[in-house]
Design a protein around this nucleic acid. Structure first.
Length: 503
RNA sequence: GGCGCUAUCGUCUAACGGUUAGGACACGGCCCUCUCAAGGCCGGUAUACGGGUUCGAUUCCCGUUAGCGCUACCA
């Protein structure tokens, strides 16, 4: 048996128009690791003018849920990458069974009448290695047929060519040449006793039928691939090119799981926190792949242009979030947060403004798009998440400021009297100054000079009066957007607060 | 237990036998500055360990250790 097709060398299979697939099983929400697998497949397809296929591997009827299907589509829709063809394994069972029985007819599979084991059986673990159920591989065809005809339930198992001493081989595009002794591979199931195909069988049967040229998936399937090679060959199909991806792990090195690590592992958590899908995609691409030229902030088009299987590395990558996350920012890898800020800044103002507006409206503020467009450039460099618009630009949205500490109005190296003096002067000046950046700049600096205070001492009380806090966007632009009426009203309020210190 | 895979700063990574081991994030300092950001400059921290091969190993080979994966009629 030729298990080592030299023809599966990378160069040859990097042929044009590849067909790749992302095949999630709907047993949970869309995991960030799955999202990365989807993205790498998509990038490979687009880079090579190929076809991206979405296939729901839903043969485990016990564990599949509609909620999970919804979550997967939810996440994929947010990623906004799309796909070209879509299939459900549960609608292709006839094909799977046909392939299974054709393998049986060739003598490469046999019926196993041993009752199913449940959960963690004594087969695996420290007890030793299980390869097959005694007596079953040797059953004669006649007896096998007789017992089946009598209605005895059975699973269909692959007959691994263990006696030949063969090595099963394939060349992985990421991990290189792989081989494993057939003697170490157990007789895995093709069909369960209820007639449903197993993952291994359904997956390979569909990959053959859909003419998948490249299987790009998580490294947890690397050792399963030997079984898959066996199936492909038993079905007289040439195995596709495999490319396994290093796994995404938590800071403690363990596999990401919702149970242990919470919502950080769900794609929708990133969406809900205000990530831009392009930033999230950029971040995931940098986990286990590198363009090799120190590029980090990359647009989707740039990623598509730069992507290749050669850039994928082999060691697991840590998603560096804080284990007990206390703030939203700690929930995510700092690099993801930084990339999101970079992508936000890279967005044209009108595009960013359009993304921000629905968030602001949903929070209950009646802001029109024209105003949002004026606010956006003032906060663009100050937000890391889209949702930060709510805290960075809050004072633009409300009619009345949230209560703040009046002592904030007191400038550096100044006192309450200075604050009062500044605010009074500001009102005088602002009453007749044009509300544009340059006139405001000139007028307020001149006012500071007249009062004999530093510019900063002049600006701070005004800033706190109109923004309700010290940290805010630049003052003149802010006043320009706020307008004269609001500005003067807020300075009035501030003067009152100053006059009546906190009770 | 068996089999497989992996191992460069705290984290993501570059260096496909010859580099003062590079970049980024994060962190610290300085500059800029109306505050906060953004930006600029500077700084510290890494080749898991032990053997080979070689004139020369981060790089190739072997072993050790550690981590991960598979070992289901889950995927």
């Amino acid at each position: 048996m030729d298990n080592s097709p030299e023809n599966s060398a990378l160069s040859q299979n990097a042929a044009a128009n590849p067909r790749v697939r992302f095949a999630p099983s709907p047993t949970g929400f869309l995991h960030v690791g799955s999202a990365r697998t989807f993205i790498f497949n998509w990038l490979y397809a687009r880079h090579n003018a190929g076809t991206m296929i979405l296939r729901l591997d839903d043969t485990d009827v016990e564990r599949n849920t509609d909620a999970s299907v919804a979550s997967i589509f939810d996440g994929l829709r947010w990623l906004n990458l799309g796909w070209d063809e879509e299939y459900k394994q549960s609608e292709r069972l006839d094909l799977h069974r046909k392939v299974a029985w054709s393998i049986f007819e060739k003598g490469l599979a046999y019926r196993d009448f041993t009752p199913a084991h449940t959960g963690d059986s004594e087969k695996s673990g420290a007890q030793g290695t299980w390869l097959f159920n005694p007596g079953m591989p040797e059953l004669s065809r006649a007896e096998s047929d007789r017992r089946a005809a009598a209605g005895e339930p059975f699973a269909l198992r692959f007959r691994v060519p263990r006696e030949t001493g063969d090595q099963i081989r394939f060349t992985d595009a990421v991990y290189g040449p792989q081989s494993k002794a057939a003697a170490d591979i157990e007789d895995f199931a093709l069909l369960r006793s209820d007639g449903m195909p197993t993952y291994h069988l359904a997956s390979c049967a569909d990959d053959i039928d859909l003419r998948i040229s490249h299987i790009i998936r998580g490294q947890d399937h690397l050792t399963n691939t030997f079984k898959h090679v066996l199936i492909f060959e038993a079905a007289c199909a040439r195995p596709p090119q495999f490319a396994h991806l290093p796994l995404l792990v938590a800071p403690d090195g363990t596999k990401l799981s919702k149970r242990r690590h919470g919502p950080v592992v769900s794609v929708t958590t990133y969406r809900d926190a205000g990530f831009l899908p392009e930033a999230f995609i950029n971040f995931l691409c940098l986990l286990g792949w590198s363009p090799k030229n120190d590029r980090e902030v990359m647009s989707l088009a740039e990623l598509q242009e730069a992507f290749s299987l050669e850039g994928i590395n082999r060691a697991n990558a840590v998603v560096n979030f804080k284990e007990p996350a206390t703030t939203p920012e700690e929930t995510f890898d700092p690099k993801a947060v930084w990339l999101n800020a970079e992508h936000i800044r890279a967005l044209p103002v009108d595009a960013l403004s359009a993304q921000l507006l629905p968030i602001v409206r949903e929070a209950g503020f009646q802001i029109d798009s024209a105003k949002m467009l004026r606010i956006t450039p003032l906060i663009r460099e100050r937000i890391k998440f889209l949702r930060d618009v709510l805290t960075a630009a809050d004072f633009f949205f409300v009619d009345h400021l949230q209560p703040y500490d009046p002592t904030e109005l007191i400038p550096q190296k100044g006192d309450a009297a200075m604050a009062a003096k500044v605010l009074q002067k500001a009102k005088d000046v602002l009453a007749h100054t044009e509300f544009k950046h340059d006139p405001l700049d000139q007028a307020l600096r001149a006012a500071a000079q007249e009062l004999g205070v530093k510019a900063g001492q002049m600006f701070q009380p005004i800033r706190v009066a109109v923004c309700g806090r010290k940290n805010a966007p630049p003052l003149f632009e802010t006043l320009e957007v706020l307008g004269r009426n609001t500005t003067l009203a807020r300075i009035d309020d501030a003067e009152q607060k100053l006059a009546t210190p906190a009770a």
